[in-house]
């Protein structure tokens, strides 16, 4: 008994185990156990847009920005599931915005057509642009996605193409903040639950396998670059949508759509919320964006603050808030002396 060391043991709560199968719906308590976290996510998002009279248009707009960041973060998270680290979500965002501006202003299409069209065509163009990089491993994807939107921004600024620093204005308006919020909330739900479902299918399994070990996937008879391209296309959709939608919201799109903020915010949101779960992306965005608004009085020091938060999460709590909370909800922990384990 000289050196008894302890290890932390995690055991599923009884209720977690019981609610794993279909019979959970037979008991109210267990149904509530399953529903509670989901409602915690859904109810505030559905109720918030109705509270405009109480909290004012300013915070409703903050809410809208949080939804934009959510979509960009969802996109980021899907890319990360295939092992692609994007440092330039602004690329998708900006492309979506400029595409819808073109469709709306030069072809005169209404937002109901121009936004979906810009979403799909923007995602296709981004996928084509990035396709050559997909054959390469490592941080290459990150370097390229980081550089392209920033270079685009400098190009637009210097050469005055695409409306230059002024941007393209006069886009067709959307029907009003409440409707806009509900559309975005709906899209965010489709994104979160859809992607969670997708990544659990056999198809999603193949995508995750590519991140683990692309060589073995290829040896399994699967065209890795082609699957990566599909993932990029799917991931680009929510982001180009967000860009197109916001362009119509402000009725203007400018080169700031390619700015670093739209790359850093979603990245930070996922890291805070926890990568790989999609719900974490949503959670992170709704922690980060309001936080960043309240820190606005500190000027650029707030950027320093969330860089530090980012660091703390990356180094100290890489699983993120969502997985942390999920674990606490589903399991209890206790310390077990190592010898007791050995005897068993």
């Amino acid at each position: 008994m000289a050196n008894v060391s302890y290890r932390k043991e995690r055991i599923d709560r009884g209720i977690k185990a019981r609610t794993d199968d279909i019979f959970a719906i037979a008991s109210l308590q267990e149904t509530l156990y399953l529903l509670f976290p989901r409602l915690l996510l859904i109810v505030p998002l559905v109720v918030f847009p109705l509270l405009q009279g109480i909290i004012g248009a300013y915070w409703e707009t903050v809410f809208l920005i949080a939804l934009v960041v959510t979509l960009l973060a969802l996109s980021w998270d899907l890319l990360a599931s295939v092992g692609l680290v994007s440092l330039g979500q602004a690329l998708f965002y900006g492309v979506g915005g400029y595409f819808t501006a073109f469709l709306s202003n030069y072809l005169g299409l209404p937002p109901l057509i121009s936004i979906p069209l810009a979403t799909v065509s923007g995602a296709s163009v981004c996928t084509l642009l990035l396709y050559p990089v997909l054959r390469l491993r490592g941080v290459y994807f990150g370097l390229i996605t980081f550089a392209i939107p920033l270079l685009l921004m400098r190009t637009i600024e210097a050469t005055k193409i695409l409306g230059g620093t002024e941007g393209i204005s006069g886009l067709a308006p959307l029907p009003g903040l409440t409707v806009e919020l509900y559309v975005m909330v709906a899209i965010a739900f489709v994104g979160v639950f859809g992607l969670r479902r997708l990544i659990d299918t056999d198809y999603g399994l193949v995508l995750r396998a590519i991140r683990d070990n692309d060589r073995s996937v290829e040896a399994g008879g699967i065209n890795v670059p082609w699957y990566k391209a599909q993932a990029v296309f799917i991931a680009a959709l929510p982001a180009t949508f967000a860009g197109a939608f916001i362009a119509h919201h402000y009725q203007v799109v400018g080169m700031s759509a390619f700015a670093l903020d739209y790359s850093v915010l979603p990245l930070t949101a996922v890291v805070i919320g926890g990568p790989g779960s999609f719900a974490g992306a949503l959670l992170g965005a709704f922690v980060l964006v309001p936080l960043s608004e309240t820190l606005r009085q500190f000027g650029t020091l707030r950027v320093v603050i969330y860089s530090v938060i980012l660091l703390i999460f990356v180094v100290g709590l890489p699983e993120g808030i969502f997985r942390f909370a999920q674990r606490k909800y589903q399991q209890f922990e206790r310390l077990v002396p190592m010898e007791e384990v050995a005897k068993e």
């Binding site: 056999d202 399994l205 193949v206 396998a209 399994g220 008879g221």
Partner: peptide
């Protein structure tokens, strides 16, 4: 689940 990958191939 490791074997789902080859089983998913064409």
């Amino acid at each position: 689940k490791n074997l789902i990958v080859p089983l998913y191939s064409a």
